[in-house]
Structure formats: structure tokens, C-alpha cells
Design a binder for these strands. Structure first.
Length: 286
DNA sequence: AAGACAATCAACCGCCAGTAT
DNA sequence: TATACTGGCGGTTGATTGTCT
């Protein structure tokens, strides 16, 4: 019996990440970390992605101080040296190279350094008696090239991506302002602890959120007769980003909740702490 | 200019180990 | 102790880009 998949592959988006998805993931992780669980993170953040994909995207691309390309000679030598010692332990090798990911090091090895390494080992040792696979021979005897000098790990200064002049300031300001408004509105609604009614900001489906003490959770209903529980069902009713829309706040709008609050779930999260949001949920539930 | 081929790298896959229940 | 779940890892794929003919 095989193990169950980590997510429903038929219901998650795959392939390259959009800027909007990156912005949402970056904002969420910088604020909340992985919220205790990568598998649950896309649900909480409103991303239609597999949790593993979110983790990989963050670790390999969005994480601060990540450097791509432009490997220095010192780094080349260090990778060659470490590979000769331990083989394809990419995560360990990458940990010795600040700002580099195991995926980057692995790709760089496979595309560039492997050839150099093989050329070096061929020069250093006579060819094997029988025709063996290069990669197998290398992997089985990484210490063959251990005679190479191991240079001191003098590494270039890291680039601070947070201050690297990214052109998102205006968008962030706008998003922050909108988030503050939405969060204040949410908190006001919670304090009232009463029936919540909000007209949709866009679209033609009238949406109403209602709460009463007898319910275990608020229910949003629309004029098509469907209903859902918030936030548990937020993910289930998300709609994909249209080609013409732009900005992080337009991605994955919840067709019910987003209309009710005049924004997206991500916007709500954007200005609240994770504890605040969880507290708000509990207050709404109970 | 266009097709073929090579190089690059982001993303996915499947397995394993650790941990919680 | 057994089972399920999650994070982490290395191997691999496939789309995109660059170079050559």
C-alpha cells in the first residue's frame, strides 16, 4: 500500500510561479513563517499550490539573501573539494556556501563542474579497465580527487535583497493601506458579534456573511444557493487569477469572502499577525 | 532567417527519516 | 508497537534560452 499524496494534484496549480503568487508566499512566510506546517500553508495563505511546492519555492528562490548564478572560483573549488570528500550531499555542500541552495549547487554541478571534475579525475587517475558509467564511477569514489587543494572559504559579501532596490514599494504601500482598512473592518465586525452583512464590492453575486451563537462557524451564502464556512472553505471557493488582472491582491480572490470584505484573504492576513487571525477565527466560531 | 542542438535551471517526483498519535 | 504525517533530500524532467550551422 503506497502512501497517500501530500496534496490533491488535480486541484493544485503546477508549473512556474507568478509574481503574484511569489508576493503572497513571501508576505505570508515573512510574517508567519510556515505557520507550523508547510502542507497547510497554501490553504492558510490562499495559494492553490502544493505545500511542498511552496516550501521549495521559498527555500530555493524567495528566501532572503539567496544568490543565483555567478559562482566564483572560490566557490567552484570549494564545491569540487567537498564533492570529492562526501559525494552528492548537496544540502551539506550548499550549507558551506552562504546564499546558495542545494538545488542551485546541484544544477551548477550537473551543468558545469561535473565536466571539470571528470576531466580532473581522468588526468589524475588512469581510466578504469572496463567501460563504466562516469557518474557511477565518480559517485562511488568521490575521494579519488581528494588530492585537490581545499581553498579557504573566502566568500563574497551577500546581497541584501530587502534593500536591493526592488520596485515594489508603491505596491506594498497600497497593499498595506488596503490591508489595514480590511483588518480594522474585520476586527470591528468581530467585536459586534452580530449578523454580518456586506455588499459585494465587485461582481454580481450578492454575498452575505451571517453569524449566530447557535452556529459553530459563520456561514457565507450567495444568491446561487451555495454556502460555505469561513475560513475552512476559503480555499475551496477560490477562483483563478484572470489574465487581465494585476497585483497580489487580485490573486485567488475568494468569491464569497473576498466580496464580503471587499478584498482578499491574503489582504486580511497582510496586516494582522497570525495569532490575530487565529484569534479572530476562534471568536467567529465561538 | 530558420531549424537543430546544447545549455540552463525551476520545478516535480519519490523516497527516507523523524515525529506525533 | 504500528501507523500516518511532515520535512527534507537527491535525482530527474521539461520548458526556456542561447548558440551554431
Amino acid at each position: 500500500m503506497g502512501r497517500s499524496p501530500c496534496c490533491d494534484k488535480a486541484r493544485v496549480k503546477r508549473g512556474p510561479w507568478s509574481q503574484e503568487e511569489d508576493a503572497i508566499l513571501r508576505s505570508f512566510v515573512e510574517r508567519f513563517g510556515n505557520a507550523g506546517n508547510w502542507i497547510a500553508l497554501p490553504h492558510k495563505a490562499g495559494l492553490k499550490r502544493c505545500g511542498k511546492s511552496c516550501r521549495l519555492r521559498w527555500l530555493n528562490y524567495l528566501r532572503p539573501a539567496i544568490r543565483h548564478g555567478g559562482f566564483t572560483d572560490e566557490e567552484d573549488n570549494l564545491i569540487l573539494s567537498l564533492y570529492s570528500e562526501m559525494g552528492s550531499k548537496w544540502s551539506v555542500i550548499a550549507s558551506k556556501l552562504p546564499g546558495r541552495t542545494d538545488n542551485d549547487v546541484k544544477n551548477y554541478w550537473n551543468t558545469k563542474l561535473k565536466k571539470r571534475y571528470l576531466a580532473t579525475t581522468r588526468e589524475a587517475t588512469p581510466p578504469p579497465p572496463a567501460g563504466g558509467d562516469d557518474s557511477i564511477a565518480v559517485a562511488d569514489s568521490p575521494s579519488q580527487a581528494s588530492s585537490q587543494p581545499s581553498p579557504p572559504p573566502t566568500l563574497p559579501a551577500l546581497v541584501n535583497l530587502d534593500t536591493a532596490g526592488l520596485d515594489t514599494v508603491d505596491d506594498n504601500d497600497e497593499l498595506l493601506h488596503k490591508s489595514e482598512q480590511l483588518y480594522a473592518e474585520l476586527m470591528g465586525l468581530i467585536e459586534q458579534q452580530s449578523v454580518i452583512t456586506a455588499a459585494p464590492s465587485t461582481g454580481d453575486a450578492a454575498t452575505t456573511l451571517s453569524w449566530s451563537p447557535s452556529r459553530t462557524s459563520p456561514t457565507a451564502s450567495s444568491d446561487d444557493g451555495s454556502s460555505l464556512q469561513w475560513p475552512v472553505d476559503v480555499h475551496d471557493s477560490t477562483v483563478p487569477l484572470s489574465e487581465s488582472s494585476s497585483g497580489a491582491s487580485s490573486l485567488f480572490f475568494n468569491s464569497h469572502v473576498a466580496h464580503a470584505f471587499g478584498g482578499s484573504f491574503q489582504d486580511l492576513l497582510g496586516s494582522a499577525s497570525f495569532d490575530d487571525v487565529m484569534l479572530a477565527q476562534e471568536m467567529l466560531y465561538y
